[in-house]
C-alpha cells in the first residue's frame, strides 16, 4: 500500500536510491553491532528524521508496527529459560537475560520499521520506478511496482464502497470464511481483475512497451544533497560506534 504523501522535507528531496542505500547500511550496521546501545543510535537517527519529515502516518500503521514490535520482543523474551529470574507466575517465567534480549530485538525491529516508514512516506513511487530503471532494470518491470502502488488506494476505496453498500443493504459481514469469500472477496477480486486489465489496456494504449527505452521528463539523479546526506549518516554511525565501543 502506498503511504507516500507530497512534501518538501529533507527526505523528500533525496532520491529513492539514497534512501534504500541508507536503510541497507543501517540494517547491516545493526547486524554487525547487535547490542542495544548501538541500536539506540539508529532509533535516535530515525526519530530525528521523523521529526524533520513529519510524515502523515495513519494510526493503523502505527498500531500494526507496535503490535509487531511488542509481539516480537515478548516472544523472544519468554523463550529464554535461564539466568536471573525476574518474574515467576508459575505458568510463565521471565528472566533478566530474556527481557534484555526481547528489548534489544524489539528495538532493532522498531528501527527497521521506522527507516522503512520514512522511506515509504517520502518516496514517490514513480521516482522509485525511475530509479530502478536507471539501475539498468527493464523499465517495464520497474513500473510493475509503481502500478501496484497506484492500484492500492483504488482497491482500498473499492473495499470501503463494497462494505458501505453491504451496510446500506443490511447484509451482515459474517466471519464465516466461505460467506466472506462469496460476499466481499469475490466482488473485490472481480473489481481488482477489471481494474488491472483496464490499467494494462490504458498503459499499452499509451505506448507503454512500444519501445525498448523511454524518456523521463522528471529525472531522478542523485545530487550533492544525496551525497552529503549519505556522508553525514556514515559519519554519524562511525563516530557513534567508536564512542560507544572505546
Amino acid at each position: 500500500m502506498s503511504l507516500y504523501y507530497e512534501g518538501a522535507s529533507l527526505l523528500h528531496r533525496l532520491t529513492p536510491l539514497t534512501k534504500i542505500v541508507v536503510t541497507l547500511i543501517a540494517i547491516s550496521h545493526m547486524v554487525l553491532f547487535p547490542q542495544l546501545k548501538y541500536i539506540l543510535l539508529h532509533l535516535m537517527a530515525a526519530t530525528a528524521l521523523l521529526v524533520t519529515a513529519r510524515p502523515r502516518i495513519p494510526i493503523r500503521v502505527w498500531a500494526g508496527a507496535l503490535a509487531v514490535v511488542v509481539g516480537h520482543g515478548w516472544i523472544n523474551a519468554v523463550m529464554v529459560r535461564s539466568g536471573a529470574l525476574l518474574l515467576d507466575l508459575g505458568w510463565l517465567k521471565v528472566y533478566w537475560e530474556g527481557l534484555e534480549l526481547g528489548i534489544t530485538l524489539a528495538a532493532r525491529v522498531m528501527a527497521i520499521i521506522l527507516y522503512s516508514i520514512l522511506a515509504a512516506t517520502t518516496t514517490n513511487p514513480r521516482d522509485l520506478a525511475v530509479s530502478i530503471a536507471k539501475l539498468g532494470v527493464d523499465y517495464r518491470y520497474a513500473f510493475a511496482a509503481y502500478v501496484t502502488f497506484r492500484m492500492a488506494p483504488l482497491v482500498r476505496r473499492d473495499l470501503e464502497n463494497i462494505l458501505v453498500s453491504r451496510k446500506i443493504r443490511r447484509i451482515k459481514t459474517r466471519v464465516n470464511p466461505i460467506e466472506l469469500m462469496a460476499g466481499i472477496l469475490a466482488p473485490l477480486l472481480s473489481l481488482v481483475v477489471r481494474r488491472s486489465t483496464l490499467l494494462s489496456i490504458s498503459m499499452e494504449s499509451r505506448a507503454f512497451g512500444a519501445l525498448r527505452s523511454r524518456a523521463y521528463y522528471w529525472d531522478v539523479q542523485p545530487g550533492a544533497g544525496d551525497y552529503a546526506f549519505l556522508a553525514a549518516f556514515l559519519a554519524y554511525l562511525i563516530v557513534g560506534t567508536c564512542l560507544l565501543t572505546y
Binding site: 507516500y4 514517490n124 513511487p125 514513480r126 502500478v147 497506484r150 477489471r194 481494474r195 483496464l198 490499467l199 489496456i201 490504458s202 498503459m203 499509451r206 505506448a207 507503454f208 512497451g209 512500444a210 519501445l211 527505452s213 523511454r214 524518456a215 523521463y216 521528463y217 522528471w218
Partner: peptide
C-alpha cells in the same frame, strides 16, 4: 480506471515519455 500516474502532469506526459518525445 485508466489513470496511471500520481500527478496530473505526469499522467498526461506518460504516453509522450513512452514514445521518447523530447522533454
Amino acid at each position: 480506471a485508466q489513470v496511471i500516474a500520481f500527478t496530473v502532469e505526469e499522467e498526461v506526459a506518460f504516453a509522450l515519455e513512452n514514445l521518447l518525445v523530447p522533454r
